[in-house]
Design a protein around this nucleic acid. Structure first.
Lengths: 331, 331
DNA sequence: CTCATGCAGGTAAACGTTTACCTATCCATC
DNA sequence: GATGGATAGGTAAACGTTTACCTGCATGAG
C-alpha cells in the first residue's frame, strides 16, 4: 500500500489539511517546524501524491493529450517528441494517441482523453474533420495543428504552416531547374492541407507560364506506401522529370518506386520532399525538402495550450509558420 | 459541466448504485425497464464515465505505461505503436514516456506513471539499470524488453531478443562474403545488450578462425548520431571493408559517414544494420539487416502484461525471439 | 479590559465513482 | 401463519486529495 497524505498526517501529528498545504506550498501560516517535520516524513516514507485523487478534486490533471494520424510518419514522431519535451518543461505530461486517420478511432481517443481528465488536446494534421458536436460537448481546450477544425469556444490556438508557399517554393525550385513536367503527390485530395498545397503548386506553374497536366496529380495519403503506389501509377500513366512530394514519407516511397523502374534520382527524375524530417539527410541520397521547423511548431502548440490553460481570456493565437527550402542531393 | 452518474440517477428516479450496476452490467436484479431508462438517458445526456473517479476507487486504470529510451529511433516508434495497438485491442490504453536514456528522466517517468495509477509498465531496451528499490516500492507490474532489470516480484515478463545469435549472423554473413576486417558499432559498452552482441560478433570470428581487432570496435549509443561519429573515428583510426552496426539507426549514420569520405556502399564498404525498421527498405540503398519482428515483440509484451494483470499467479513468461537475416542492397 | 489582528492549524465537505450490505416486496411452501 | 428465497433496488462508506471556513491563542492598541 502506497503511503498517503493520511499516513504523513498521522505520523506528524497534524491534520491532512496541514500536510496538503505544506505540500502545495499554499499556506504561509504553518510553522517552520511543522513544515520540516512533514517534508522529512515525505522523504522517509517515500510519499508520492496520488495524481488521480488530486485531479478528481482539482479538475485539472496537468496532462495534455496529443492526437496524431500516423505516428510512424517520422514527422509526427518528431512532433510528438517536441510536444512532450515542451510540456515537461512546463510541468505537464502528455498522452499520445494515434488515430491511423480513422474517424472512429479519433472519436474514441477523444472520449478517452476526456474521461481521463486531460487539461487540453492537441489535434495534429489529419485529413479528418473532427466531430464538432463532440468537441463542443467535451469543452476541452484544443490546439489544432495544420488542420481544419470548427471554430469552437474551446479552440485555444491554431498552429498552421503556410502550405501554399511551401508547395509554391517546391514547384518553383523544380521549374527553375528546367523541369517542365512535374508530378504532384499529396494526401487526401478533399482535405485542406492538400488543396492548399495544390494551389501553391499551380501558382508556381501559372507564374512560369506553364500548364498543369491533371495526369501528373496523385493525391491520397501522406505515408510512404502511398508514395510508392502513386509513383507507380504515375509512371504507368505519363512522363515527367520531377516530383513534388508533399511529405518526406511520400518522397521516400516515390524514390523507391523510381529505382524499381531503373530511374536514377536526380538524373532521370528529381524528387522534392516536404517536412525535413530528421532522417531526410540520412537517406543515402539525402533528400531536398521543405523545412518546417517541427520542434518549434510543437513548442508553439504546447506553449499556446498552457497559456490558454493559465488564462482562458487571453486572445487566441494563430501562428503561420513560413517554410524554407533545404537543398540536398535529390534535386 | 459534464454529466455524471448522479444526473442519470436523478432523472431516472433511481439511486447512483443502480445506475452504476447497470453501466457495469454487474447486477442481474435490475428490471429491464430501469435498465432501458438508464441506457437511454446515457445516450441522451451523452454520459461518459469519469475514469479518474473510477480508477480512484477500483485502483485500476486500464492504462499501461511504456518507457522507451529514444522515441526518434524508428525501432521504438514501431514498438510503441505495436504496443498501443495491442493494448487497445484488449481494452487498455497506453501512456508513452521517452527517457532520452537519462536515468533521472526515467525515474521521474516511473513516479509519474505510478502516481497516475497505471496498471503496468513496459520498460523497453535501454542502457539504464533501473532503480530496483523504486520499482520494488512502486510494486507496479513490469514487463522488460531487451533490458536488464532486477528480478522483482512485480516482474510480469521479460521479452528478449537473442542478440548473441543476431550479431553472430550479421558478422557471419559478412565473413562469408569474404570480409576480413569488420568494424563493430553498438550501444553503451557497459550494457548487456551490447556485451551480448559483442560476444556473438566475436564467436563468428572465432569460428572462422579470424582475430578480432579491438581497433575496429566502437560502442556508445544506438542512435544515428553515434553511428556517424563512430564511423568517422573508425575511418580515421584504421581500415575495414565492412561494418556490423547493431541498430539500423547506427547503420544509417554509418552510411552517411562513409559517403562523406567518398566511399561507396557496398562496393568500398558493406554495412549491416540490426532491427529491420520500416524505413530500412526505403533508404535509397536499402539496408541489409537483421529482422527482429518488432510488432510481434510489442504484442507479446502487452499480452504478457495483461495476462499478468488478469491473473498474477500464472507463471512468468520469458520469450527469446530468434532474429533472422534480411538481405537487401548494402551488403 | 476589550477588541482586532496575525498566526497555526483543524473540520468536514467535496470530487464521481464502486460496492458491501441492507431493505422491502412478492410469492410459494410447509 | 411463519419461513424463505427470489427480485429490485437503496444506503452509505470508501478511494486520496483539496479547500472554504472555522477555532483557538497570543499580542498589541485603545
Amino acid at each position: 500500500m502506497a503511503t498517503t497524505i493520511k499516513d504523513i498526517a498521522r505520523q506528524a501529528g497534524v491534520s491532512t489539511a496541514t500536510v496538503s498545504k505544506v505540500l502545495n506550498r499554499k499556506d504561509p501560516f504553518i510553522s517552520e517546524e511543522t513544515r520540516e517535520k512533514i517534508w522529512s516524513l515525505v522523504k522517509e516514507l517515500d510519499y508520492t501524491p496520488n495524481s488521480i485523487a488530486r485531479s478528481l478534486i482539482t479538475r485539472s490533471s496537468r496532462v495534455i493529450g496529443i492526437i496524431v494520424p500516423d505516428i510512424l510518419n517520422a514527422y509526427f514522431t518528431e512532433l510528438v517528441r517536441a510536444c512532450d519535451l515542451a510540456a515537461r518543461e512546463r510541468g505537464y505530461s502528455t498522452i499520445l494517441c494515434n488515430s491511423d486517420s480513422d474517424p472512429e478511432k479519433e472519436t474514441s481517443h477523444l472520449t478517452f482523453l476526456a474521461s481521463h481528465g486531460v487539461d487540453g488536446i492537441v489535434l495534429a494534421a489529419s485529413d479528418l474533420i473532427p466531430d464538432a458536436g463532440l468537441l463542443q460537448r467535451l469543452g476541452i481546450p484544443l490546439v489544432s495543428m495544420d488542420r481544419e477544425v470548427p471554430d469552437l469556444d474551446c479552440l485555444a490556438a491554431r498552429i498552421d504552416t503556410d502550405y501554399e508557399t511551401g508547395a509554391y517554393l517546391s514547384a518553383s525550385h523544380l521549374i527553375g531547374n528546367g523541369h517542365r513536367r512535374i508530378a504532384f503527390v499529396s494526401g487526401n485530395p478533399l482535405a485542406s492541407n492538400t488543396r492548399i498545397r495544390r494551389a501553391g503548386f499551380e501558382r508556381a506553374h501559372r507564374e512560369a507560364g506553364l500548364p498543369v497536366d491533371q495526369d501528373l496529380i496523385e493525391c491520397g495519403a501522406f505515408n510512404h506506401r502511398f508514395g510508392l503506389m502513386a509513383t507507380r501509377t504515375l509512371l504507368d500513366r505519363t512522363r515527367f522529370t520531377a516530383m513534388c512530394c508533399m511529405s518526406d514519407m511520400l518522397a521516400m516511397g516515390a524514390t523507391v518506386a523510381l529505382r524499381e523502374r531503373g530511374l536514377n534520382v536526380p538524373e532521370d527524375c528529381a524528387v522534392m520532399g516536404f517536412d525535413n524530417i530528421y532522417i531526410a539527410p540520412l537517406l543515402v541520397r539525402p533528400l531536398s525538402t521543405i523545412e518546417r521547423r517541427i520542434t518549434e511548431a510543437g513548442q508553439l502548440a504546447i506553449g499556446a495550450m498552457i497559456d490558454f490553460l493559465d488564462d482562458p481570456t487571453r486572445p487566441r493565437r494563430t501562428v503561420l509558420m513560413e517554410p524554407t527550402v533545404i537543398l540536398r542531393e535529390t534535386t
